[in-house]
């Protein structure tokens, strides 16, 4: 499929494969998240995002997922036997980050507002115990996938 995040275009991502990977591990992953009163990817982070903001915001979020969330969840993925699903999501997020990287660097207009949104997510992440935060963020990937779906150019 082809995604258009404002001026940033991402193709070669089959979102259905990402969904299948997430569904395959959803129950086991979300069962580990005991803090049900907190949501990292809450409305203020993802709602009413302008087209141009979306490129910056997605780049910041996915880079955080690749560099921090996946990295710190990896041992659990081995433990739970969900390496295949983990690999599918990690490698596809890796592709998206690299495709967004170039184009989002050339845009300055909405970078600050996108950064404020990311910081809402990041501060909520930092307020939790490290392992709990990584588990919660990993379990919230469906929120991220659903948000990305809206930018799919059918």
């Amino acid at each position: 499929q082809e995604f258009q995040f404002g001026p940033c275009q991402v193709d070669g991502i089959v979102l259905q494969k990402l969904w299948q990977a997430f569904w395959a591990m959803k129950d086991i992953v979300q069962a580990q998240d005991n803090i049900t009163s907190v949501r990292l990817l809450r409305k203020e982070v993802l709602q009413n995002v302008s087209e141009t903001e979306s490129c910056h915001l997605l780049h910041a979020l996915l880079r955080f997922y690749v560099n921090t969330v996946f990295k710190n969840y990896h041992d659990k993925a081995v433990e739970f036997g969900i390496l295949k699903s983990f690999s599918t999501l990690a490698n596809n997020f890796f592709v998206i980050v690299s495709k967004l990287q170039a184009s989002q660097e050339k845009m300055f207009s909405t970078r600050e507002s996108a950064r404020r949104r990311f910081l809402l997510f990041y501060r909520a992440f930092k307020q939790l115990d490290r392992e709990a935060a990584v588990t919660k963020a990993f379990g919230e990937m469906d929120i991220l996938l659903r948000w990305m779906e809206k930018f799919n150019q059918l």
Binding site: V66, F70, K71, H74, V78, L83, K84, S87, A90, N91, F93, F94
Partner: peptide, 17 residues
């Protein structure tokens, strides 16, 4: 191993299906 594994968890290999 995908590119992610090679870069971030190079000691981990995934058995083929």
């Amino acid at each position: 191993q995908g590119e992610y594994e090679s870069l971030y968890t190079s000691h981990i290999w995934i058995p083929s299906s």
